[in-house]
Amino acid sequence: MRELSQHILDLLQNGLEAGATRLELDIDDDEQANLLTIRVCDNGRGMSPETVKAVTDPFFTTRTTRHVGLGLPLLKAAAERCGGGLTIASTPGKGTEVTATLVRDHIDRAPLGDMAVTLMGVLLSEHECDLVYRHRQGGEVFELDTAELREALDGVPLSHPQVRPWVQAYIREGLDGLNGAGA
């Protein structure tokens, strides 16, 4: 995958496929510590310790539609090649937390890329789910809580054709305010 935001979309989709009703995404872009940390937390069905050990094997998947599961192995490889790593914590029945840490200025670090479109990919999912997104960069924070948006919409779906462009523009505007997020 060319952008970290594509890996992030994949992680969020994993949460949706696991039946999550709430997803949390934290991106901490810490220039001083020279670290980029991505954390995705879901309240889906969770995994047993045996499954957690197996999920970074590309030939393991819980899906029945195919026999490989490349998402987490690809992210693990992307993190490790940038001097970072991947940790997975999961509790059956409670959910899963995946954290990827990458050395920010590593020559092999992929750009974060288009986070606004990544988030739209989740908000338009057939599995409706609340998403809390916090993006910290240079002492600034952009926070999006879809529960707030849904409350304001009072029954009108976030995916409504006339609402959808507004939501995407709202996210873009918030990220632009972080001076360079998405670059």
Partner: peptide, 18 residues
Amino acid sequence: MPKVKSLDELRKLRDQVK
């Protein structure tokens, strides 16, 4: 950077499309 888009604007849009 001041925010142009606000939840009030979203509420107005909601009323238009409801």
